[in-house]
Every structure is written in C-alpha cells, then in structure tokens.
C-alpha cells in the first residue's frame, strides 16, 4: 500500500537548511494500522505531507496506493483519504453541504454525492448535525466530521495526522471507536501520526518511531518494548540493609549498566523478563541475608523505548531520569 525509499525533505528557514526528514524507508501492507510516533518536530507531518502529495520530496521515491507520488500525484489523490492536523471543514458551509461537495471533489455527480454524504453522516453519528456549521460543533464532533470528509470517496488508504490531539478523553475514545470500526468493516489501511504514547501502544498493531527525521524503531509495541526497553524491577530493602551491596548483587546478576539507585533507597533494574528475574533476585538476596521490604515489576511503556533509543523522554516537560513506574 505504501512503499517509500529514501524520502528526504529539507526546508530553508532564514537561510539555514533544516532537514525535516532524512531518508525515510517504509513499507505498509494493505489492511495495516500503523502509528507514526515521535516528538513534535520529528518529521511526522512532513512525511505524511510528502506521502499525500501535498509536499514534493527533496529526494527519494514513494508509491502510495499503487501510484508514484512524483509522476502520478492525481492517481495517489484519487485513492487516498487524508485527515489533516487542522480541521478540514470550511467555516461557512453546513456540515452536509461540505460533505456533498467533498464527494464532487472526487468526481461524483450531485445526487450520488449527497446520498454518500448522508451515509457518512450516519456512520460517524453526525446525522443530527447535518445542518449545522462547524463552528457550532464540539471538538470531538468536529474531528469526526474531518474523518467523515476523509471517507466520502471510500479510500482504501486513510492518512490521519494527529487525529485526537487536543481532545478530551471521552472524545478521543469516540474518535478511536470510529477509526477501529472503519477498519473492521472495510479493511481500510490506516496510517496515522500521534504523540500520545498510550494510543500508539494500545491501538496500533505496528509502531514506527521517528526522531529527528529518521525512523529509529519499527515493530509491534510489545516487540519494541521487549527488544529495546525490557521490564523493570523495583526493590526496596528493609531498613538497615546495605544498599550498595544490594545494588552490587543486582549488577552482578543483570549487568552493571542496567541497575540504578532510585529515590528512597530503591534499587531499580532493567531485565528482559521480570517475572522470572524477580524471584531469582529475591532468592540470592535472602541467601546473602538481605531482607526485602517491597518489590514490584512493571512492563515498559513506549516512552521507555524512546528513552532507551534516544536518551530523551517523549513526554514533554518530564526529565529523562526518574521515569520509573
């Protein structure tokens, strides 16, 4: 569905060349749900804009839905849907009018376009809002309208640029419900960007992590976590125990660079499989005569993956250290 090779894009900003995307290679199979994950400015939107023919690449090639983005942009446009970061509905038009016009933009005649508008209104639970203007809709309703606009021509491939950014949890859930239903019913290939970690984690079957214009990881969320971050063990020895001795023991077992001393006398270790590593550690410590006050294990988050890859946290404003639990 998508095959990109060496896509790059640079911008000139105040006489300085900024490389927004540096060599994107990606293949997406029909029916996949791919989440493009990365911090702001990582090159997610620029990549999407290239794949959707909005922005010509500086170099590299890509075929999208069977058409080359450089030599046959019209072919690409006819076969894809695009839900941009900003709202796609014009402020002056009523919801149904805009949807019907969108059908005409894809070559439909007036009557079929209006019928199709009613269908998408129905399927995105927007029917009661058909005669309203976008300005009177809530954030979540507006976003559903944007998705409806992207679906009018039944594209086999839909791009969504941050579909849920800025929405409250309830609206986010509703938008996701519709996205997933779409996939279930029509097998639509979905390619979306997000900077919400939980979303990429729970919804996408494939997560592509991008940072500074390059893909730095690609796989299922579970796979990325096991390969790149590992589980976490957190252990608090009983009062009076020799913390450094405990840390040494853990370091001996799991490797020195995997063990850190957390706050409150806590020892933390990163291990491939916490459920087997923890009992082992407890046994060794007991044999050494160290008693344990508390012990927990946790699965890593995608933020841990990002942290392991870049040394930075994806969550804004949060320092890289102390990301435990």
């Amino acid at each position: 569905m998508i095959n990109a090779r060496g896509l790059t894009r640079s911008f000139k900003i105040k006489r300085k060349t900024v490389e927004a995307v540096r060599g994107l290679d990606i293949d997406v199979e029909p029916g996949q749900l791919v989440a493009f994950l990365g911090p702001n400015g990582a090159g997610k939107s620029t990549s999407l804009r290239m794949l959707t023919t909005l922005l010509p690449p500086t170099s590299g090639t890509a075929t999208v839905a069977g058409c080359d983005i450089a030599t046959d942009p019209e072919g690409v446009r006819a076969r894809i849907g695009y839900v941009g970061q900003r709202s796609g509905a014009g402020e002056n038009l009523r919801v149904r009018d805009e949807l019907a016009n969108q059908g005409r933009c894809y070559g439909m005649a007036g009557a079929p376009a209006r019928r199709r508008a009613d269908e998408v209104l129905e399927s995105l639970d927007l029917a009661p809002l058909a005669q309203r203007k976008p300005g009177t809709l809530s954030g979540g309703q507006r976003r559903r309208l944007d998705i409806a606009l992207g679906l009018v021509h039944r594209p086999p491939l839909l791009f969504l640029d941050e579909p849920t950014t800025g929405l409250d949890p309830h609206s986010r859930a509703s938008v996701w419900e519709h996205i997933l239903r779409l996939r279930e019913r029509h097998g639509t290939t979905l390619f979306l960007t997000t900077h919400y970690l939980e979303e990429a984690d729970t919804m996408a079957e494939r997560v592509v992590v991008i940072d500074e214009g390059r893909v730095i990881a690609d796989g299922t969320a579970d796979r990325l976590k096991s390969d790149l971050a590992g589980d976490r063990i957190s252990l608090v020895p009983r009062d009076g125990a020799d913390i450094t001795a405990v840390a040494d023991t853990a370091a001996r077992m799991f490797g020195a660079h995997e063990v850190t001393a957390g706050s409150g006398g806590r020892i933390e270790a990163r291990v491939p499989r916490a459920e087997t590593a923890l009992p082992e550690l407890l046994r060794v410590l007991e044999a050494d005569g160290v008693e344990t006050a508390a012990a927990t294990t946790s699965r890593p988050t995608l933020d841990d993956v990002f942290l392991a890859l870049t040394g930075r946290s994806l969550v804004e404003g949060e320092p890289a250290e102390g990301a435990a639990l």
Binding site: T53, E74, Q85, S87, Y106, D146
Partner: peptide, 19 residues
C-alpha cells in the same frame, strides 16, 4: 476568505483531492 481556509485546514483538504 481564502486566507482563512488556508490557515484552517479546508484548502489543504481540497489540495489532497484530485480537484
């Protein structure tokens, strides 16, 4: 009015269509 549509996303949406 075009400027408003440019700053919003509606013109972009139409530019992705085969219009």
């Amino acid at each position: 009015t075009l400027l408003v549509e440019l700053l919003g996303g509606s013109l972009e949406r139409m530019l992705v269509s085969p219009l």
